[in-house]
Design a protein around this nucleic acid. Structure first.
Length: 480
DNA sequence: TGAAATGTTGGGGCG
DNA sequence: ACGCCCCAACATTTC
């Protein structure tokens, strides 16, 4: 067999197994593995996510025997130079789907081809690519359920088997211009925050598979019923691994269907399809990252009160369940899914702050920060998305706490200053008699804030704002 | 993948 | 036994 050197451009597919681009290259001969931090990717890695990326790169570099070439700059210039210096005519990568990535990749692909290179790109990130799932009239789905039925429900056993790690994987010597991963400046300072993350997460392809295995062994069977209770650790923790591609969705599906009889696995796999749907929406409607998908929400009177925003970010709203969620986010780089909805609802509806501010904060703090999932999630809560929750569904964080954190375990864990309160008042300390507060060592406004808004009246304000928005829209429509 | 307001029903206490 | 009221438990409607 000929041995032809191929350049593999790694992006959000930082793994060796089930990596179609890598498999193709390895099949042709030796490989030159490359990671490039460019303007497009840099704009998308902030905060916690940058820390994860740095760990991912180190782990990938290890798996490649230290051969990963790392650069910072313009990918076209760098790839061209690498091709020239190493006499490479073949470049491969796995596709990304965010608008700026698509634009960049299209440009680079055509430029490389004009320069006489062969470029091949693959799907290593989604079960189906966006253009593979369309309605009968060839337009994209905007509603989850029909999307789910069309391509996924009941046919999880029809996806192909994921690719193994290439049997022969030989990297050429490292390019002399390659910099060290640390030099990318992803985590400029060794802060206590990063150290905290380090103690909680192991970032590698192996760890991703360990997480999946443990989830399948212990949690997936009761996922549907348990997943709503934030005090229990019922999640798969696969979010950040999926984002950076330490594991592929195809590998998840394959492993799940091998070990879990179908009806039991449905509710989890459905979540994986929400991830697909988010990527799909972002591909067809790139504006969801920044603007309301439903334009009638453009005149919703959302504000950006910086003081309120800060209190929300810091978990000092005085509403225990919201504060617990926001503190979990800050301390762990993740937040329980139901609590995400509750915290988001509180910001957008009770505080009337634009979802974009919440989305930005989540992008900064979440280890699984992902533009597709994040913007789809926020627009879902805000009511402005494609298949969104109606705006008038306003979560009551007290009721939600009583339903899903009945003993207050989750709240106590993240708000130690309330931990001695009896469960009757843990979700609403402002209703506790002074004597109970005193016994628990709580002084409202001192040891823990008073609620920054009244839940009942702020809810009414939100509904009034919605009414206002509808009137505005009716008026402009009439004017047209 | 809500919550509150409003409507309906039915059991039990009571005169 | 009967009507009446109260109210909890659901059900329906509305935002």
């Amino acid at each position: 067999m000929d041995n032809v050197l191929t350049l593999v451009w790694f992006r959000k597919d930082l793994r060796l197994s089930d990596n179609p681009a890598l498999a193709k290259a390895a099949n042709r001969g030796d490989i030159l593995p490359v990671f490039i931090l460019d303007d497009v990717s840099q704009a998308m890695v902030t905060g916690a996510s940058a820390w994860w990326l740095e760990q991912s790169l180190k782990s990938l570099d290890d798996s490649l025997g230290g051969a990963l070439n790392v650069f910072c700059g313009d990918p076209l210039v760098i790839i061209n130079k690498l091709c020239d210096c190493n006499n490479i005519s073949h470049v491969v990568w796995n596709r990304c789907y965010e608008a700026s990535e698509v634009t960049r990749d299209k440009y680079i692909k055509s430029a490389l081809r004009e320069g006489g290179k062969t470029v091949e790109t693959f799907n290593g990130r989604l079960l189906y690519e966006p253009w593979q799932v369309l309605k009968k009239d060839d337009t994209p789905y905007k509603v989850f359920t029909p999307f789910y039925r069309r391509g996924y429900q009941g046919v999880f056993d029809q996806f192909p088997e994921p690719l193994p790690i290439p049997k022969r994987l030989v990297c050429v010597h490292k390019d002399s211009d390659s910099i060290f991963i640390d030099e990318l400046g992803l985590t400029p300072k060794k802060t206590p925050w990063f150290e905290k993350l380090e103690s909680q997460w192991s970032v590698s392809e192996k760890s991703a598979h360990r997480s999946l295995a443990s989830f399948i062994d212990h949690k997936i069977c009761n996922y549907e019923t348990d997943r709503d209770f934030p005090s229990q650790d019922t999640g798969s923790h696969l979010g950040p691994y999926l984002h950076w591609g330490q594991i592929s969705p195809l590998q998840v599906v394959s492993q799940v269907r091998r070990q879990v009889p179908f009806p039991r696995s449905e509710s989890f796999l459905r979540q994986l399809v929400w991830r697909e749907f988010s990527h799909y929406l972002l591909f067809y409607f790139p504006r969801i990252a920044h603007r309301n998908l439903k334009s009638e929400y453009d005149c919703f009177p959302w504000g950006d009160n910086p003081t309120d925003l800060t209190r929300w970010q810091q978990g000092q709203t005085g509403i225990p369940l919201v504060d617990a969620g926001m503190r979990q986010l800050w301390q762990t780089g993740t937040m329980h899914n139901r609590v995400r909805m509750i915290c988001a609802s509180f910001l957008v509806k009770n505080l009337l702050i634009h979802w974009k501010h919440g989305a930005d904060w989540f992008m900064d703090c979440l280890l699984d920060a992902d533009v597709a999932n994040n913007s789809a999630g926020w627009q879902w809560v805000a009511g402005s998305g494609a298949d969104a929750a109606p705006f008038f569904r306003i979560f009551n964080p007290v009721t939600q706490g009583e339903k899903f954190d009945a003993h207050g375990e989750y709240i106590r864990k993240y708000i130690p200053e309330l931990s001695a309160l009896p469960e009757k008042y843990i979700c609403s300390p402002w209703l506790a008699p002074a004597s109970e507060l005193a016994v628990a060592g709580v002084e409202l406004g001192v040891t823990y804030p008073k609620p920054m808004v009244d839940l009942k009246s702020s809810r009414q304000d939100a509904l009034d704002a919605l009414k206002h928005m509808k009137q505005e829209n009716a008026r402009t429509q009439q004017a047209e």
